[in-house]
Amino acid sequence: MSIAMAIAPHLPYLRRFARALTGSQAGGDAYVAACLEAIIAEPSLFDEELEPRVAIYRVLLGIWDSIDINRRVDTSELPHERNLDAMTPRARQAFLLTTVEGFSAAQTATILSTDESGVSDLLDEAGREIASQVATSVMIIEDEPLIAMDIEVLVEGLGHEVAGIARTHTEAAALARRTNPGMILADIQLADGSSGLEAVNELLQEIDVPVIFITAYPERLLTGERPEPAFLVTKPFEPEVVKAVISQALFFDTRAGKSSKVAAAG
């Protein structure tokens, strides 16, 4: 397969990514054009041993990183990515590659010429920078004390505060009314046999916040009923996954913590 044929299916997504980096359609498309011109002039830039999509993103970011002004560029023009301008360049790249473009940590590491540990550090940095802009109060609904403590540490490590921890449907309702949280992290199987899903549905009738479900039973969230998950990961969870989902839920929320969007880490 020719390089042109390998690249062609990925160009729409490459344009999306470049537009997110530059903050404009014209700027993004100009970088994609420069990327293609560079490959035509020097085909060896496109590493054919890599997945084509990984290879083309790597070339684009190589060009991007070679221009010093891109370390300071304002990318606030895209409405749903309004917070990108306050993020450092490498953290912004890692965040967009994993959350918008859907690359794995290993693929992102290859694109950014680092390792998976480096990607994890960049995503942590992105999470902290996002939290500094949209820091909020997080309510945890979890009946297992050790898991609740782990989640509490993750939340506070990102710069948010924990409104409290509820173990049952009743406790969750009372805590939400008392603290008015900006985000909810909820298991769906609670200590008294009640449903965290039902508790969240009830709470969302009174408060409008992003929700992240953390559960060992993801199939219970795939019923077609509301709230529906935007992200679905199973217990036992990796801390980096939970931190990334928290950051995504707040970052892409059009009201910065006041939305009916639901993310699920299960």
Rank of each mutant, 00 (worst) to 15 (best):
134 V>F: 03
134 V>H: 03
112 L>K: 04
125 E>L: 15
123 L>K: 03
132 S>E: 08
115 D>W: 07
107 Q>N: 14
118 G>M: 07
112 L>G: 02
122 L>A: 13
125 E>P: 01
128 R>G: 04
109 A>W: 13
123 L>S: 04
124 D>H: 12
108 T>V: 04
126 A>L: 09
107 Q>Y: 10
133 Q>C: 13
134 V>E: 04
134 V>W: 05
132 S>T: 06
132 S>F: 06
121 D>G: 08
132 S>G: 05
119 V>S: 05
116 E>T: 13
105 A>L: 12
126 A>K: 01
128 R>D: 00
111 I>G: 09
132 S>R: 13
130 I>R: 07
112 L>F: 08
121 D>M: 14
129 E>R: 11
122 L>T: 11
120 S>T: 07
128 R>P: 00
121 D>V: 15
117 S>M: 10
133 Q>D: 09
125 E>M: 13
121 D>I: 05
117 S>A: 12
121 D>Y: 05
115 D>C: 04
108 T>I: 10
119 V>M: 11
116 E>F: 02
108 T>S: 15
108 T>M: 06
128 R>C: 13
122 L>N: 06
128 R>T: 02
132 S>V: 07
124 D>Y: 10
115 D>L: 11
105 A>D: 15
114 T>E: 01
117 S>N: 07
107 Q>E: 15
116 E>W: 01
134 V>L: 12
132 S>H: 11
129 E>N: 03
131 A>D: 11
105 A>F: 05
116 E>L: 07
112 L>D: 03
127 G>M: 08
106 A>K: 14
132 S>M: 07
131 A>C: 10
127 G>N: 13
111 I>K: 04
114 T>K: 06
133 Q>T: 11
108 T>C: 15
133 Q>I: 12
123 L>V: 08
112 L>V: 07
128 R>Q: 00
111 I>Q: 08
123 L>R: 15
127 G>S: 09
127 G>A: 10
108 T>A: 15
135 A>N: 11
135 A>W: 02
112 L>N: 06
110 T>G: 01
114 T>M: 04
124 D>E: 12
112 L>S: 06
129 E>L: 13
106 A>D: 12
133 Q>E: 12
126 A>V: 12
118 G>H: 01
108 T>P: 05
110 T>H: 13
112 L>H: 01
120 S>R: 14
122 L>I: 10
114 T>I: 05
109 A>S: 11
112 L>I: 10
117 S>L: 08
124 D>R: 10
118 G>S: 03
123 L>N: 00
115 D>R: 09
134 V>A: 14
113 S>T: 01
130 I>E: 03
111 I>H: 06
121 D>T: 14
132 S>A: 13
130 I>F: 13
106 A>M: 04
116 E>K: 08
107 Q>R: 12
113 S>A: 03
134 V>N: 09
115 D>S: 09
125 E>H: 05
119 V>K: 07
110 T>V: 15
120 S>L: 00
122 L>F: 11
108 T>G: 14
134 V>S: 09
105 A>N: 03
105 A>Q: 11
130 I>S: 06
113 S>Q: 10
113 S>C: 01
130 I>K: 08
107 Q>G: 05
